[in-house]
Simulated assay, not measured.
Amino acid sequence: MRLAFLEPLYAEPGPYVSVYLDTSRDVDRPERAIDLRWRRLRESLSRQGAGRALLNALEEVVGSDAELPGAHGQAVFAAHDTLVLDGELPSPPAHDSARYGTLPDAMPLVTQHVPEIPYLAVVVHYGGLPTADTHGWVTLEAEAGTWPASTVTPGERLRRRVAVATWHRAAVRLGHRLDERARHARADAVVVGGDEWACNVLLRRLPRGLRNRVVRVGGPTPTDTGRALLEPQLDHVFRGRMAVHDRELVDLFVSRRAGGGPVSEGLAAVVAALQRGQVAALLLNRPPVSARRLWVGALPTQLALTEAELVSFGVRAPREEPADEALVRALVGTGAELVVVPEPELRLPEQVGALLRYADAGTPSPRPP
């Protein structure tokens, strides 16, 4: 999983306010419920030392996702009286939270993007009888996305309406159009639902490479909900599944570990590799890594298990922070990826390991500010 979407968050120095809030619309009087939740969080942030201007900047965007139906949440970050990131959460947070600190609490936002599987969803509708009604219409809708984040941030939809009499010929052309979209999205799967006859005509005319990635699904296929196309079916197809790219990274880690290649395991070894900008991908069994804390400096690579270590590197005024927050900042700052691996598939010491960019050739210390 690439973390480039978090780069704006670290473009500003702290302190930061990090807010996670349930903004679901599937309850009675949702605006009132959201307002009450925000009031409690605002009071908590005020007690933590956040100023009024900073809180007002947050209040302008809290609950601004009114057009999004169903259950979901919102993650909002601000610094220096300015909003720096506003992200939608595919699921409501387990509990509302607000933190005012020197680093943003970004790990809960990251983990709601996992497993970040690229896909193409296609729905084909036809209400008539293919052998008798040649005057009807076939409608096709397609939408590329990345599950589960696209459930609350759906992409642009392709919509086409074709006369039944021309559906067999049109399906060839539309198949190539869908192939282009899938290639552009680097889709791991093409999830297809809708009328059986119309779907079968389309599937038989898809390019072979695309046809091999098709997953047929049943059940209702509404196309006007304001959420992701085939959202309930996507959850069933992808739950418990890893993205193909992440699976390749895990396989590479296992191969390198068996052959003595460049990998690190355990928190101390991973932190040492992050200090050197050596990590290509961080592997976690499950976030949070642990209840541990790390010492950090001003730069993303300035992190250590002890204050004394950072002081020995010449870092001035190091401070102690939650390990998750320090690790995410280091990953974003060094352009490293994150892979969450189910523990039964790969057990990691202290729940953490890393694929390295190069073999260890020494241990240079982090640069002082």
Rank of each mutant, 00 (worst) to 15 (best):
L21R: 00
G145E: 09
D224F: 04
V27C: 03
R29V: 02
A170H: 07
A336I: 00
P104Y: 03
A291C: 05
L210P: 01
E141M: 09
V217E: 01
T23K: 04
F5M: 13
E143R: 01
V215Q: 06
N285S: 10
V84E: 09
Q233S: 08
L83S: 10
G194N: 04
E59T: 08
A354Q: 03
A268Q: 13
G14P: 02
L229T: 04
R247I: 03
V311A: 14
R316H: 15
L41T: 04
A53I: 04
V217Q: 00
D251C: 03
A198Y: 02
V19A: 00
A291E: 14
G261C: 01
D28P: 03
Q233L: 02
V271L: 10
V76Q: 00
H95A: 12
A269L: 13
A57E: 09
V339A: 02
W38C: 11
R208F: 00
V214I: 00
A272M: 14
R204S: 00
L103R: 10
D246S: 13
T306G: 10
A243H: 13
A269D: 15
W147P: 02
S290M: 03
T131D: 11
A170C: 03
Y358W: 15
D195E: 08
L234M: 06
V138Q: 01
G266K: 08
R2Y: 04
R32L: 10
R211D: 01
Q112H: 12
Q74H: 07
V201H: 00
A165G: 15
A326Q: 14
R39C: 04
V62Y: 10
V19G: 01
S44D: 15
A323W: 13
L129F: 04
A189W: 08
L158F: 13
G63L: 13
H113W: 07
D246L: 10
V254M: 11
D22A: 04
T334N: 11
T301S: 15
A359C: 05
A308W: 09
A53R: 12
V332K: 06
A132Y: 09
L346S: 11
L249I: 12
D246T: 13
L6I: 07
Q48F: 12
T146R: 03
L83R: 11
E12W: 06
P154N: 04
A198E: 02
A280E: 13
L327N: 08
V237Y: 12
V341C: 03
Q48C: 06
E7Q: 15
P115G: 05
V328R: 12
G218N: 00
G136S: 01
F253K: 12
C199L: 10
W167L: 05
S365T: 11
P369F: 07
C199K: 09
A187C: 00
